[in-house]
Amino acid sequence: MNELLKPVYLEEKLEEIRADGHQDYRSRSLPTWCPGCGYFSMAEGFTLALKKLGRSAEEVVVVSGIGCASRFPFFVNTYGFHTLHGRTLPVATGVKQANDALTVVAVGGDGDAFAIGGGHIPHAARRNVDITYLVFDNGIYGLTKGQTSPTSVLGFRTSTSPYENGDEPLNPLMMLLAYRASWVGQAYAGHPHHLADMIAEAIAHRGFSYLHILSPCVTFDKTTRTYRNLNMQVRDLPSGYDRTDLAAAMGEAMKVDHPALGVFYEESRPTLADVMDETARKAGLSPVPAGGE
């Protein structure tokens, strides 16, 4: 019997899904992304990841900025904060600072992350704030109807680069590695199961985890970052890859024409909360320094 060919019986499947409960992590509102958008993949992957990790909805906070990807919090049944363009990480840092027990996931698109919000990333990374940053990179501004983004490829025509984009796209993975994010991975919206696993791993990581998610913009990019192209381009990390080797990670990150999927880099080092605790410990031992008042 060919299991793959075995028909799916809807009522059985629905029962299974109900029992599984991951749909409880969804909000009531239907996502407003364009049909086919890769961001659905992360929404679904996120719920699967939370289910897999057994996090209860009320202990999870999703923080987003502005943009298509940043609509994410509305579509999950966790605590959510849809903030301002580019300000995802600081807000998420604030949430985490307020309550270490919370699982904090920052979500944004490539414009939100690397254009307006680019200044915040190094600091969240170097401080090793124990949050997860999911960046959905479709290489375009979707919410404003198709302008060039920091990750738009050279030669890409958009409404703001009508004569082709001439700005070198930046390499987010190299940036994050250089910023010392303690977990750096890449996934692809077209591979939802892998994506879900990666989200789960990123959330489980203690420290700042950065997951770069390649996604097409099905509405405004019909030529470059399409499912078709990405399907041909993506690859797995080489066998025997050492995820603790930063230099190797950099090397893989440089291969932009054939993006690798998987965990590029991982390290364990004190989180911001650890540093805070250590500071508190030191403060308790020291005389009160003068100054200020």
């Binding site: 239907l30 364009c34 049909p35 086919g36």
Partner: peptide
């Protein structure tokens, strides 16, 4: 449904 990301591209 296990592979579906509920993107509604099909519905569209």
């Amino acid at each position: 449904p296990d592979n579906c990301i509920f993107c509604r591209a099909c519905i569209d």
